[in-house]
Write a protein that binds this DNA or RNA. Structure first.
Lengths: 205, 205
DNA sequence: GCTTATTTTGACCAACTGGTAAAACCCACG
DNA sequence: CGTGGGTTTTACCAGTTGGTCAAAATAAGC
């Protein structure tokens, strides 16, 4: 039996939030193993033992981050509506995903780090929750194709390509800026236009 | 003045090769910080001090790997030929890049790890060598468009999209297999067909 | 077969890292 | 205003990690 969860105090709420924000910054920039508890504590403006008063371990912070993020991350795909106009729905999904890369690049890199290294901590969520959602939406796309509303493509790979293309701008940010010639350049307007064209041409029957 | 480099012995050649192979395995799976010298030594079948007899530091091994790889990695893009058939040239580039993801996933992940974490060790190569090559090839694509040989698109983002789409299958391998439903599935045949369709539809004038 | 240069090893170290314990501190509440 | 809970700090620890060093073992050249 567990002690009934005591009321979370004001300070607790503030500090857990500050810690998660700091952890996102550090984990996304250095990966799980590359990040140190000290770095996170310093970024949060706390001492290491104080930070460990709020989370039992480094791993727990990481898990809390990933769990909290998974929901948000899948929202754009969930919003894909079978009853909408097929092309507009897909272009809308692409736009939302690209906006997430622009507005939440750290979150994108956090996932990227985790998955590149074999998803040791969120493997189950991928083949469970994620797979189920993707299969469901792939089925919708499949029906659109069968109805002749968009040109035929492999639905799963269509989804992969949307992920790859949009997340690239967050995850490979440094490379994009290096090639385009400087950190002051904003690639997103062009990227948006490019992806719009790409998917329109590919999917118009 | 430096001692004139002594002849590299047979053992030296064999062991540096073994070490680099082992290092590729370990670095690509865990990132720079996540990899330990001991792991690499063990994978190479050497003791840690013995490994450090061939390379002065962990960092030196990593650098040697990245330097050696950069060349190979850019080869497919270098092969893009202005005088060939535009669409065939681009589709060929896509195919070669996809084959590299399939045949050299560890190399792809090594780069991905490095770039996601801000390219602390190869930043200069990105804005130097890489940028120059990309600018050059973008110019070629631009001329193809001006000549009406392919449909108009932003050449730089076209190249980004080829990178993103092909490397996705190596870097996010676990996710792809999780969603498709098992490690026994080979996504590459479908991926090849999908990308062929995608770029053909987008670029046909 | 002997000598020399190369290679390998075992013992070791200092810095770092995740995490702990207990005392000190602070703040709301009666 | 004091007391009991929540909070923070100081001091600390054991394990890991990158790296060194001198001695031992091996290979190469003559």
């Amino acid at each position: 039996m567990q002690q009934p969860a005591r009321t979370t105090t004001r300070i607790q709420r503030k500090n857990t939030a500050v810690i998660l924000e700091a952890a996102l910054e550090v984990f996304s920039a250095h990966g799980f193993r590359g990040a140190t508890v000290d770095q996170i504590a310093q970024a949060a403006g706390l001492s290491k033992p104080n930070l460990l008063y709020y989370f039992p371990s480094k791993e727990a912070i990481h898990t809390a981050l990933l769990d909290g993020l998974m929901e948000t991350w899948l929202d754009p795909l969930r919003a894909l509506d079978e009853d909408g106009d097929p092309l507009a729905e897909i272009l809308g999904y692409v736009r939302r995903k690209l906006e997430m890369s622009r507005d939440y690049p750290r979150e994108s890199r956090l996932f990227a780090n985790e998955i590149i290294q074999g998803a040791p901590r969120i493997g189950p969520a991928l083949s469970g929750e994620l797979k189920q959602l993707v299969d469901e939406k792939a089925e919708i796309i499949h029906r659109w194709i069968a109805d002749g509303k968009i040109a035929p493509v492999n639905p799963h790979h269509l989804i992969f390509s949307i992920w790859a293309l949009t997340q690239h701008y967050a995850d490979f940010d440094v490379q994009v800026h290096a090639v385009l010639g400087g950190p002051e350049i904003d690639p997103y307007p062009e990227a948006g236009a490019y992806l719009d064209t790409l998917f329109t041409r590919m999917l118009t029957p």
